[in-house]
Design a protein around this nucleic acid. Structure first.
Length: 270
DNA sequence: CCATATGTTAAAAG
DNA sequence: ACTTTTAACATATG
């Protein structure tokens, strides 16, 4: 689920409820989630410290730690969610902050791939069903482009408006822009009325500026309403469905390696 | 059993 | 050398 809006919600949750609590124990035994660290590496680095700030760029989060400790990097992957409990063990924030449908299956302990246990009795845990998320010390964010919500007009033009790759692949390339995932890309291109298949380098400047505006609008809407699945066109990404604006047929193809849906009437090639 | 899934990335291809 | 595409990753669900 997590794209930029969901990650921002998780970051805000950590900022609101996870900072300045002494870390008493750490479960870092999931060697895939914590790769390339060995079990115990994160524990040794974090016990006795507190998280002091929560940051985000695109879909990547990291927390500063006290006493000049290493940063704690968290990536939610395809299915990660952050859960934070109070000293009484009650869920205070996080968890069910997004998703296309409510959970029907009972919670399973094995889905919790990484945990901080605070000295006050509460915890901060990462639940990740698909296990494609990751936790690491001092994450390298050097290959990430600017955050998709913060990128300026000139930089957006220069970064997005080049290359022969299809436009959708371009805006989902995390080294070009950080934060756009599959659903946010479809939503943004639909709002902008642009075909996902357009070669990125062939966009006009006015089209790029409009795209950036719609991207920011889509992000703001998703953050405010609880996730990318609250987008206008996202619920219509289904066979036989129609564009909620014009009634045109929604069409599907694989673009940039991902299932892509767009309006056959409005998002056409020039 | 089959298809699909909100992400990343190494490897292959161009 | 740089850009683009594909496959694999680990797991759940309809």
């Amino acid at each position: 689920m997590p794209e930029l809006p969901e990650v921002e919600t998780a970051r805000a949750a950590i900022e609101a409820a996870g900072l300045h609590r002494e870390i008493a124990d750490v479960d870092d035994t999931d060697t895939f989630e914590c790769r390339p660290h060995a079990p115990g590496d994160l524990k040794a680095a974090l016990v006795g410290r507190t998280l002091t700030a929560a940051h985000r760029r695109g879909k990547s989060m990291w927390c500063d730690t006290s006493g000049d400790g290493p940063a704690l990097g968290i990536h939610l992957g395809m299915s990660g969610r952050v859960f934070i409990t109070d000293p009484g063990g009650r869920l205070t924030i996080g968890g069910d902050y997004g998703g296309p449908r409510p959970e029907t299956q009972p919670d399973r302990d094995v889905w919790y791939r990484f945990s901080l246990y605070f000295a006050d009795g509460g915890s901060l845990r990462l639940r990740d069903k698909r296990r494609l998320g990751r936790v690491r010390l001092d994450p390298d964010l050097g290959d990430l482009g600017p955050d998709a919500e913060l990128v300026g007009r000139e930089e957006f033009r220069a970064r997005v408006g080049r290359g022969t790759a299809p436009l959708k692949a371009r805006i989902m390339d995390q080294s070009v822009l950080a934060g756009v995932g599959n659903l946010l890309a479809d939503e943004t291109l639909w709002r902008a009325g642009l075909s996902p298949l357009r070669p990125a380098g062939e966009l006009r400047v006015d089209e790029l500026d409009h795209l950036r505006r719609e991207l920011r609008g889509a992000i703001r809407h998703a953050v405010k309403h609880g996730g990318v699945h609250t987008g206008e066109v996202v619920p219509h990404r289904r066979a036989g469905d129609h564009c909620p604006r014009c009634g045109g047929e929604m069409v599907r193809a694989t673009v940039g390696g991902r299932t892509t849906w767009w309006c056959s009437a409005e998002q056409t090639l020039p």
